[in-house]
Amino acid sequence: MNKPTPEPRNPARLLLCSLAFLLFGLAACGDGSGSSPAPATPDIPFRKDGTLTFLRDGEPVVTIDIEIADTDSARTRGLMQRTGLPERSGMLFIFPQAEPQSFWMANTPLSLDILFVGPDSQIVSISKYTTPLSPENITSEGLPARFVIEVEAGFVDTYGIVETDRVRWEDLR
Score class of each variant (00 low, 15 high):
residue 57 D to S: 08
residue 111 S to G: 12
residue 166 R to S: 14
residue 38 A to K: 13
residue 158 T to D: 13
residue 18 S to E: 02
residue 104 W to A: 07
residue 65 D to F: 00
residue 84 G to F: 09
residue 80 M to F: 10
residue 8 P to E: 10
residue 150 E to T: 02
residue 150 E to V: 03
residue 158 T to H: 08
residue 142 G to E: 14
residue 68 I to D: 00
residue 116 F to I: 01
residue 79 L to C: 13
residue 55 L to H: 08
residue 115 L to K: 07
residue 119 P to C: 06
residue 115 L to F: 05
residue 112 L to G: 01
residue 73 S to M: 11
residue 133 L to K: 07
residue 62 V to L: 12
residue 116 F to N: 06
residue 56 R to N: 04
residue 87 E to Y: 10
residue 52 L to H: 12
residue 28 A to Y: 04
residue 65 D to I: 00
residue 23 L to I: 14
residue 133 L to M: 12
residue 109 P to H: 11
residue 117 V to L: 05
residue 84 G to R: 15
residue 126 I to H: 07
residue 28 A to H: 04
residue 65 D to E: 02
residue 73 S to Q: 13
residue 10 N to T: 12
residue 16 L to F: 04
residue 114 I to A: 04
residue 21 F to V: 10
residue 86 P to S: 05
residue 163 E to K: 08
residue 130 T to W: 09
residue 35 S to G: 11
residue 168 R to A: 15
residue 129 Y to D: 15
residue 143 L to C: 01
residue 87 E to I: 02
residue 118 G to T: 12
residue 104 W to F: 03
residue 68 I to G: 01
residue 127 S to Y: 09
residue 55 L to T: 11
residue 92 L to A: 06
residue 36 S to G: 15
residue 89 S to P: 09
residue 162 V to E: 14
residue 83 T to C: 05
residue 37 P to W: 07
residue 104 W to H: 09
residue 82 R to T: 03
residue 83 T to G: 15
residue 19 L to R: 10
residue 23 L to F: 13
residue 83 T to N: 15
residue 74 A to Q: 04
residue 76 T to W: 09
residue 65 D to C: 01
residue 13 R to D: 04
residue 84 G to P: 03
residue 116 F to W: 10
residue 33 S to R: 06
residue 121 S to I: 14
residue 81 Q to M: 15
residue 78 G to N: 07
residue 50 G to F: 00
residue 173 R to W: 03
residue 145 A to F: 08
residue 71 T to R: 06
residue 31 D to A: 08
residue 29 C to E: 14
residue 44 I to N: 06
residue 84 G to E: 15
residue 170 E to G: 01
residue 35 S to E: 10
residue 41 T to Y: 13
residue 123 I to D: 12
residue 152 E to Y: 11
residue 172 L to F: 03
residue 109 P to Y: 03
residue 89 S to K: 07
residue 70 D to G: 00
residue 169 W to A: 05
residue 7 E to L: 14
residue 12 A to W: 13
residue 165 D to S: 12
residue 28 A to D: 05
residue 62 V to N: 11
residue 135 P to M: 06
residue 119 P to H: 14
residue 9 R to P: 10
residue 84 G to T: 14
residue 117 V to W: 00
residue 165 D to T: 05
residue 94 I to W: 02
residue 139 T to A: 00
residue 74 A to T: 08
residue 95 F to T: 11
residue 73 S to Y: 10
residue 86 P to E: 03
residue 79 L to F: 04
residue 59 E to V: 11
residue 167 V to L: 04
residue 162 V to Y: 12
residue 15 L to T: 10
residue 156 V to G: 01
residue 85 L to G: 02
residue 89 S to F: 07
residue 16 L to Y: 04
residue 32 G to R: 11
residue 102 S to I: 00
residue 135 P to I: 06
residue 169 W to M: 02
